[in-house]
Write a protein that binds this DNA or RNA. Structure first.
Lengths: 115, 115
DNA sequence: AAACAATGTACGAATAATCGAATATATGCA
DNA sequence: TGCATATATTCGATTATTCGTACATTGTTT
């Protein structure tokens, strides 16, 4: 592949890091306010280890900043642009609402079948 | 997880679909202009089957629209917002250039070692 | 119809992502 | 020091992605 392959990988890494519902949820919460790991766990009803793993992914891609204070670790989004991207996807979703709903319905049907 | 889990999955799906360097490259080309599968293959120097698989991913998440014309299939980005998101990541990259460069360097070192 | 061109799909192997359980590493406090 | 709390890491099993090879499909041309 020609040109700046490494730059593409960089971008792809960021997308990929956000390519999981739990990490989306974390990023959305953090775009509103700084939160400790524990608070995130409580808010999103996550397993402790699982949350920590997802936070590690976000940290490794530098999407999130960790600030240690005493016993706990406070997380925040590193760049507000990421919050805006998340926000702009809301618009995207609205714009394609009809089809998006069809997609979501299909997801639900799949879920129903799998249970 | 509370609240609209399905909506998060929807968003995560979009990120995940863009979470691969080849698909980023495809999306970036298509944000500039409509292109046939063959043109993409040539531009990005991809294997035919591989390109087709990546295009299938982008189609399945409706990131891309396929228009069949005679023998060939022309692709375009479904929503310019996606192009803008891609563009805004360029800004993100600039803003964190120093660290981003360190990341890229590390990627390169990893690559060098693996070869 | 036969050959060709462009694209898509199926399959299997290799690699990567995800999860829960258990364990480790701080830090705070009695 | 000893114990509790908050967070991170390791491990193994499971599932998902990715890739190349081979084949299928569709439309075009002769």
């Amino acid at each position: 592949m020609p040109q700046s392959d490494a730059l593409r990988r960089f971008k792809a890494d960021i997308f990929q890091a956000l390519g999981h519902p739990t990490r989306i949820a974390i990023a959305e919460e953090l775009s509103r306010q700084e939160l400790s790991a524990g608070q995130l766990i409580q808010l999103l009803e996550l397993e402790q280890a699982n949350a920590s793993q997802h936070l590690a992914v976000l940290r490794s891609k530098r999407i999130v900043i960790a600030r240690k204070q005493g016993n706990q670790v406070f997380y925040s989004l590193r760049d507000r642009a990421l919050g805006e991207i998340l926000e702009s996807l809301r618009g995207y979703f609205q714009r394609h609402l009809r089809e998006a709903k069809a997609d979501l319905d299909e997801v639900r049907r799949m879920e129903a079948r799998t249970r």
